[in-house]
Amino acid sequence: MLAAKFSDLITPQLGHQLHQRKLLNLGFMVMGLVAIMVALFTLAALIIHMAMSGWPRLSTWEFFTAFASRRPERAGILAAWVGSLLVISVTAIVAVPIGVAAGIYLEEYARKNWLSELIEINVTNLAGVPSIIYGLLALGVFVYEFKFGRSVLTAGCTLALLILPIVIVTTRESLRSIPQMIREAAYAVGATQWQVIWHHVLPYSIGGILTGTIIGLSRAIGETSSLITIGALTFIAFLPESPFQGKPPFVSWEWLNSPFTVMPIQMFNWVSRPNPEFQVNAAAAGTVLMTMTLLMNGFAIYLRYRLRQGIKW
C-alpha cells in the first residue's frame, strides 16, 4: 500500500532527475576508476619494462656477488646493496629513538604554547625541505665540522635527518589516536605520566609508529641527491669491514668510517654511462631497489596488521 503511494510520487519529471543523478554518480565512479587505472598501469608498465630489460643480469647470481666494473657483463651490485643495508641500519638506529622521543615529548609532555607551536610548524616544514638541502647541511656539519668523512656514518646520519620529520609526525599521529580515556583510567589508579606512556600509550600506538618509521626508511633507501652531495658518487669495489669479528671484542665499528656506495647511486652511475649494456645493469639494479622498497612497505603493512590484532581495549 505504502509502496504504491511512493511510486505514485515519482512523477516523470522526478524520475528524469533521479536518472540524471544516478548517471552523474556512475560517471564519477568511472572517472575515479580511470584515474586509478592510469596510475596503476603506468606503474605496472614501468616496473615490468624495467624488470624485463634488467632480466639478463638479474638472472645471474654474479650480479649480486660482484663489484662494479668497467666491463658491464662483469659488473655487479655487491658494494651497493651492502652499502644500502649498512646506511639504512645507521639511519634507523639514529632516527627512530630521536624521532619517537621527540614525538612523545611534543604530544604528551610539551605545553601548548607558542614555542611548541613554532616547533610543530618547523617539523612539518622540515618534511617538505628538498633532500639536496639536507645533503648540503650534512656536508658542512658531518663531513667538515664533525670530521666523519664521506662515510657510512655520515650517510646514515644524513638520511636520519631526512626522515626525522616523518617519524616525528607519524609518532604524534599514532599517539593522538589513542583514546584519552585510556590515559585517564591509568592516571586514576595512580600511574605517573611515564608509566602511562610506557605501559599503555606506547604499546598501543607502536603499530602506527613502526609503520611510519618503515615507510620513512623505505624513502631513505631510494634517496640519491643528498648522498651525492656528500660525495657518494664513487667507484667502490670493496666492502666495508665486517661488523662481526672472529676475535674479541667480536664487534667492530670500523664499517662506520668506510667509504660506501648505495643502490640508487650505483644505478645513477650506470644510467649515465654511454655503453648501452650498462643500461641493462641499471634496469636490473632498479628492479632490485624496487623490490627492496616493496618488501619494506609490505613488512610495514604486515606489522600494522599484526600489532593491531594484539590490541585489547
Binding site: 666494473s69 668497467r70 658518487l233 667507484f235 669495489a237 670493496f238 667509504p259
Partner: peptide, 27 residues
C-alpha cells in the same frame, strides 16, 4: 679521466686481492 682511473683501480685491487681499497669519485 674517470674511466681510465676506474680501470686501473679495478685491476690494481684485483692484483692486490682486496688488501688495498681504492675509491674513485666524479666531482
Amino acid at each position: 679521466v674517470f674511466p681510465i682511473t676506474e680501470a686501473v683501480a679495478e685491476e690494481f685491487q684485483a692484483s692486490k686481492r682486496g688488501a688495498v681499497r681504492v675509491t674513485v669519485g666524479i666531482s
